[in-house]
C-alpha cells in the first residue's frame, strides 16, 4: 500500500516539472543577486540557488532509484554550512571596517 502510493507519487509527476521548478528557483536567486545591494540578502539568494540545484540532484536520484544522488546532496549541504559560517564571519568583518552592508562599498576590491 505504502509502496504503491510512493510509486504513484514518482510516476504522477514528470521529471520535467522538477526541472522547471529548479530552473525558476535558480533564476530567482540570480535575480536577487543582481537586484539587491545588501550583502546579507545576496548571500541568502546564493543559498537559494544552491537549494535549487540540490533539489534537482535529489529529484534525478529519486527518479533513477539511486542513493548516490542523495549522498551528494548531503555533502553539498555540509559544504554549504561551512561556507555560510565563513561567509558570515567575513561579512561581520566587513561591517566592522566599513560600517555598512552595501555591496558597492567594496568596489575598491577591484583594484
Amino acid at each position: 500500500m505504502v509502496q504503491d502510493t510512493m510509486a504513484q507519487t514518482l510516476h504522477g509527476i514528470p521529471i520535467n516539472a522538477y526541472l522547471m521548478l529548479s530552473a525558476v528557483l535558480f533564476s530567482i536567486g540570480v535575480l536577487g543577486v543582481l537586484y539587491r545591494r545588501n550583502i546579507i540578502v545576496i548571500f541568502m539568494c546564493i543559498e537559494l540557488m544552491l537549494n535549487a540545484v540540490n533539489l534537482l540532484l535529489a529529484a534525478f536520484g529519486a527518479y533513477r532509484g539511486d542513493s548516490n544522488g542523495q549522498i551528494f546532496v548531503f555533502f553539498i549541504m555540509a559544504v554549504a554550512a561551512a561556507e555560510v559560517a565563513v561567509g558570515l564571519a567575513i561579512l561581520v568583518m566587513i561591517y566592522r571596517n566599513t560600517k555598512n552592508t552595501d555591496i558597492d562599498e567594496l568596489s575598491r576590491l577591484k583594484w
Binding site: 510509486a7 514518482l10 521529471i15 520535467n16 530552473a23 535558480f26 533513477r64
Partner: peptide
Amino acid sequence: FMIVLIGSLKGVEKIENLNAANQSA
C-alpha cells in the same frame, strides 16, 4: 536568464528506465 534556462530544458527527453522497484533509496 529564466527564459533561456527553461527554453533549453524544455526539449529534454523523458528520463528512461525509472527504477521503480528501488523505492527505498
